[in-house]
Amino acid sequence: MNNKFLGTGVALVTPFNSDLSVDHDALKNIVNYNIENGVEYLVICGTTGESVTLTKQEKKAVIKTISETNNGRLPLVLGIGGNNTAAVVEEIKTTDLSGIDAILSVSPYYNKPTQEGLYQHFKAIAEVSPIDIILYNVPGRTSKNMEADTTIRLANDFSNIIAVKEAGNNMAQYLELLKNKPEDFLVISGDDDLALGVVLAGGAGVISVIGQALPKDFSEMIRLGLKGDPKAAYKLHFKLIDVIGYIFEENNPAGIKAVFEALGLCADTVRLPVVPASSHLKEKIKAYLA
Score class of each variant (00 low, 15 high):
255 G>T: 13
32 N>G: 14
175 L>K: 12
106 V>M: 09
150 T>I: 05
100 I>L: 11
92 I>Q: 05
222 I>L: 04
112 K>D: 01
221 M>A: 04
41 Y>R: 14
262 A>W: 10
15 P>V: 11
94 T>P: 02
123 K>V: 04
82 G>M: 04
46 G>S: 11
32 N>H: 12
257 K>V: 08
97 L>T: 09
69 T>V: 10
100 I>T: 11
147 E>H: 14
274 V>K: 10
72 G>H: 08
59 K>S: 10
234 Y>H: 11
81 G>V: 06
191 D>C: 00
72 G>R: 09
98 S>L: 11
44 I>T: 07
219 S>R: 08
142 T>C: 11
189 S>T: 00
169 N>V: 04
215 P>K: 12
111 N>W: 02
162 I>Q: 01
177 L>M: 06
101 D>C: 12
122 F>G: 01
182 P>E: 07
172 A>I: 14
282 K>C: 08
48 T>I: 08
262 A>R: 07
289 L>F: 09
129 S>T: 05
37 N>H: 15
264 G>R: 05
214 L>H: 07
220 E>T: 15
48 T>V: 11
238 F>T: 09
57 Q>I: 14
187 V>N: 00
47 T>F: 01
268 D>M: 06
129 S>K: 04
87 A>Q: 13
45 C>G: 13
180 N>L: 08
115 Q>G: 02
23 D>K: 05
270 V>Q: 10
159 S>H: 08
153 R>A: 12
151 T>P: 00
82 G>E: 03
113 P>Y: 01
44 I>H: 03
81 G>M: 07
238 F>Y: 13
192 D>Q: 02
217 D>P: 00
140 G>Y: 05
101 D>L: 13
197 G>K: 04
124 A>D: 13
183 E>D: 14
122 F>L: 00
203 G>H: 01
225 G>A: 03
207 I>P: 04
290 A>M: 15
101 D>V: 14
156 N>M: 08
199 V>E: 02
274 V>P: 01
32 N>Q: 15
235 K>D: 10
249 E>N: 13
251 N>E: 14
139 P>Y: 03
147 E>A: 12
267 A>P: 01
196 L>Y: 00
138 V>F: 07
19 D>N: 15
204 A>K: 05
239 K>G: 02
286 K>N: 15
241 I>S: 09
169 N>K: 11
77 V>C: 13
99 G>T: 15
267 A>F: 01
152 I>V: 11
217 D>Y: 09
163 A>P: 00
267 A>Y: 01
168 G>W: 03
25 D>N: 15
118 L>H: 08
63 I>M: 11
201 A>Y: 05
44 I>N: 06
96 D>T: 12
155 A>R: 05
209 V>A: 09
232 A>W: 02
45 C>V: 07
100 I>Q: 08
124 A>V: 04
3 N>H: 14
282 K>R: 14
153 R>C: 06
169 N>R: 11
93 K>T: 10
19 D>M: 13
209 V>G: 06
61 A>L: 14
258 A>I: 08
136 Y>H: 03
235 K>R: 10
225 G>H: 05
168 G>L: 03
232 A>E: 13
12 L>V: 12
33 Y>T: 14
152 I>N: 07
215 P>G: 14
133 I>G: 00
190 G>E: 03
236 L>D: 09
155 A>I: 08
141 R>S: 01
17 N>G: 05
213 A>I: 12
142 T>M: 07
283 E>Q: 15
124 A>Y: 07
206 V>Q: 02
113 P>T: 07
239 K>Y: 11
188 I>D: 02
